[in-house]
């Protein structure tokens, strides 16, 4: 183990291996951040749909969750990268007109976003359904519409309850970005492998990446804990059990 290798130049590259890994880390964070936005918005919509009184909204939400939860994420990456662009002539033209990196980024963000949305939808549904039925009825009794009841009564409490499982989901999302490697996205794991392949210093490369992922996980964990504290409602105990998955 000799970490000095990190300060050596990449052959025919523009900097040291450390900089190469850092640039990978940058893409990991970009993908995670953009995918989180999609996952949060889409997952919230789907989660709410599954708790409404509209039968078709519930079915649609359930179908989405089942489809995206029951296909391995790796296969979903392959579908986004290899299958979808080739299905139609128009999508193929669109994809070919893009810079490959743009498409790899886009495919990774959409893939991780839609996958994580299914998991968030499950948490949001569980959060809303954990609230006493009386809260919804109270909203209606006060003359609020269904939308207003969600906006002002159900969601503010439900979101607070599900902060711990959402923390796990965020951490899972960051870890899952490593699968972008499978479609050639130059994120942290790709750069780690590349460094291993080109310098044959696998232990050094993988140690650096392991430390980076652990540090990110700690930061994400801390950040969510701060949010949890800031938004806590006195008298409520948050702490739904953490979801499974990776």
């Amino acid at each position: 183990m000799d970490l000095k290798i990190l300060l050596e130049q990449v052959p025919d590259g523009d900097g040291t291996w450390l900089m190469s890994l850092a640039s990978g880390l940058k893409y990991t964070m970009i993908v995670a951040a953009l995918a989180w936005i999609i996952a949060f918005v889409l997952g919230s919509i789907l989660g709410v749909m599954r708790t409404t009184e509209n039968k078709w909204a519930v079915r649609l939400g359930n179908a989405y969750v089942e489809i995206f939860r029951n296909v391995p994420l790796l296969v979903q990456f392959f579908v986004w990268f290899f299958v979808l662009p080739n299905l139609f002539v128009s999508t193929k033209h669109l994809v070919n007109s893009l810079d490959p990196l743009t498409y790899q980024l886009g495919a990774s963000v959409l893939c991780l976003g839609t996958f994580t949305a299914a998991r968030i939808a499950e948490q949001v549904r569980a959060g809303i359904q954990s609230l006493p039925r009386g809260q919804r009825d109270a909203g209606y009794a006060m003359g609020l519409s269904q939308a207003q009841t969600y906006r002002y009564i159900l969601l503010p409490v439900a979101y607070r309850i599900i902060i711990p499982p959402m923390t796990s989901e965020l951490m899972n999302l960051i870890k899952n970005t490593a699968l972008g490697y499978s479609i050639g996205l130059v994120e942290l794991f790709f750069r780690t492998r590349e460094m291993g392949e080109m310098t044959f210093r696998y232990y050094e490369a993988f140690t650096a990446a392991t430390v980076a992922y652990v540090v990110i996980a700690m930061i994400a964990n801390r950040a969510m804990a701060v949010i949890e504290k800031r938004t806590a409602i006195p008298g409520f105990i948050s702490g739904a059990s953490a979801g499974g998955g990776h």
């Binding site: 052959p11 025919d12 810079d99 490959p100 790709f190 492998r193 392949e197 080109m198």
Partner: peptide, 24 residues
Amino acid sequence: SGTTAVPLLKGYEKTKNVDVKEIY
């Protein structure tokens, strides 16, 4: 990825001022 073509290509791009976009 992992082949000698990768650094060769990067070297070629630099010396010939050619810019290609790789998919690995």
